[in-house]
Nucleic acid binder design. Structure first.
Length: 494
RNA sequence: GUCUCCUUCGUCUAGUGGUUAGGACAUAGGGUUUUCAUCCCUACAACGCGGGUUCGAUCCCCGCAGGAGAUGCCA
């Protein structure tokens, strides 16, 4: 039997880490088993739906390189794959259930339901949920409600006796007494749209879904779904409930923990490889020691059995580590093009970069590569090139173990060695050795010579390596800034 | 309140009826280095608690505690 899985998000917000991981697991499971990965849009909540969310869904999957075999845009044999376009279908099935006596019309107002709920809470009633007020209306009562123009909902008749069990690949058998299953949940809302439970079961069945991998928060409604499959006389699929992704405090990951939308991470300069690799590892592992996985590898080695039961806490620092790793592994050309938008945003280079600017960005890649956690770090690393704010504070030029006098000499003589050396076409290593010799002569540490030069050139004690900085600045600018730095130290010395 | 699920270093995890309980991130220290970073080395650090079963339990069983989720005309 062919494996068919689906990712079925609701476009009511930006795609977040938890959702994307569900998508990834489904996608990898399909690939590893030569199956099909289906994308289905569950847009039955008309209140919260937004076009932006739908677009974000497509953009995010696109960016991650997750292609769906069937779904919106690409189509497929069981379409449409957007639930709002399947509107009529759900009503038909719901009404069939009513005809079969497995569901019924309910005319209760939201206000009444709320009142019932409040009373149950207030009385600490053991029984919580709908009181089945409309479960056995007579034809006359129904007709009266209809006359009043009340739009009914359709509720499932949940048995009050017995229990329902379903099997979960990870959890084993999960059993719930029927009296503990949500009493008579709504299947079709008064606006004619189905609820999640109805639409989900119908579509999974009609689309031939064989395995359902979804978040653990759905476990409690598992029995309800089984009841629905039974009511329709359908065979339920294999279930596998995924551990949730939590924040530092052990609560469901949310915005107060930091970024949660993939768009946020993308904007900050995270690479899709890093997101895929790390997110997959929260709740899944191959062998406990392999950490680096490419998407292609995961498409081969992903096993459902290796998914964990325990919810995982999302560790931003470990993500950073992965991202740094992937930045270092990134091709120069690609990294340059990833860096470009940040440099443009900062106003460092133009929207239509000239050939010179492009060449400069390429030169920036090497020195920045080892130093970025996220691509946006390039802005701070390269700021000295585009914004020249000389350091006026003499103390900054003085390295640890040196003093103002030695620093001045080191800068003055070091600059000469540097410039004449470069102009004579000497090897950098040779120049470096001469600078080291100078430090010895002055009786200061090596950095006592390099620091004032670096501060003079990059306006900061923390900078890219000296010779890289010079290459980026160019000879003329190097001379200018060195001359100016000498001036600053000289002036203060009188 | 009721129901369901979960429990190995701070975090992600490996693992076994007898192991020095392994790896990675983080943290701390050190080395390489012109700063930063990279890279390398070292250290720190865990089987939730209580009962069983057993010659022996982190591992098997039962309680407990703690955590999470669900309990919507949201998914």
């Amino acid at each position: 039997m062919e494996v068919r899985v689906r990712y079925a998000p609701s476009p009511t917000g930006l795609q977040h880490i938890g959702g994307v991981r569900t998508a990834l697991y489904n996608y990898f499971f399909a690939k590893a088993n030569g199956g099909k990965f289906i994308l289905r849009v569950e847009d039955t909540d008309r209140e919260r739906y937004s076009d932006e969310s739908l677009q974000d869904l497509y953009d995010t999957l696109d960016w991650l390189g997750i292609e769906w075999d069937e779904g919106p845009v690409v189509g497929g044999p069981f379409g449409p794959y957007i639930q709002s376009e399947r509107f009529e279908l759900y009503r038909k099935y719901a009404e069939q259930l009513v005809k079969d006596g497995k569901a019924y019309y309910c005319y209760c107002s939201p206000e009444r339901l709320e009142k019932v709920r409040q009373e149950q809470i207030a009385s600490k009633s053991e029984y919580q949920g709908y009181d089945r007020h409309c479960a056995n209306l007579t034809d006359e009562e129904r007709a009266e409600y209809e006359r009043q123009g009340i739009k009914p909902v359709i509720r499932l008749r949940v048995p009050t006796e017995g229990s329902t069990t379903f099997h979960d690949v990870l959890m084993g058998d999960i059993t719930r007494r029927n009296r503990d299953v949500s009493p008579d949940p709504i299947l079709l809302k008064s606006d004619g749209f189905p609820t999640y439970h109805l639409a989900n079961v119908i579509d999974d069945h009609l689309m031939g879904v064989t395995h359902i991998m979804r978040a653990q928060e759905w476990i409690p409604s598992g029995p309800l779904h089984i009841l629905l499959y039974k009511a329709f006389g359908w065979e339920p699929p294999v279930y596998c409930h995924l551990p949730m992704v939590m924040g530092k405090d052990g609560q469901k990951l949310s915005k107060r923990h930091g970024s949660t939308s993939v768009r946020d991470f993308r904007t900050k300069g995270y690479l899709p490889e890093a997101i895929i690799n790390y997110v997959t590892l929260v709740g899944w592992s191959l062998d406990g020691s392999t950490e680096i996985f490419s998407k292609q590898e995961l498409e081969k080695c992903f096993r459902m059995e290796n998914i964990h039961k325990k919810p995982g806490i999302f560790d931003y620092k470990k993500l950073d580590w992965f991202n740094g790793y992937y930045i270092r592994a990134c091709e120069d050309e690609r990294l340059a093009s990833l860096m470009t938008p940040y440099l443009q945003e900062a106003g460092f280079i133009s929207k239509e970069p000239s050939e010179d600017e492009k060449a400069l960005v390429m030169k920036l890649v090497g020195p920045c590569k080892e130093r970025m956690k996220v691509v946006s770090d390039v802005v701070e690393l390269s700021r000295f090139l585009f914004e020249d704010k000389p350091v006026e504070d003499v103390g900054v030029y003085v390295a640890k173990g040196s003093d103002e006098e030695s620093t001045f000499k080191a800068l003055e003589r070091g600059s000469k060695i540097l410039i004449s050396g470069l102009e004579a076409g000497k090897e950098e290593q040779e120049i470096e050795e001469e600078l080291v010799a100078l430090s010895k002569e002055l009786g200061i540490k090596v950095n006592g010579v390099f620091q004032p030069i670096r501060v003079g050139l990059t306006n900061s004690t923390v900078s890219l390596p000296l010779f890289d900085s010079i290459r980026l600045l160019g000879m003329d600018e190097t001379k200018r800034r060195l001359g100016r730095a000498i001036g600053i130290l000289e002036a203060i010395h009188g």
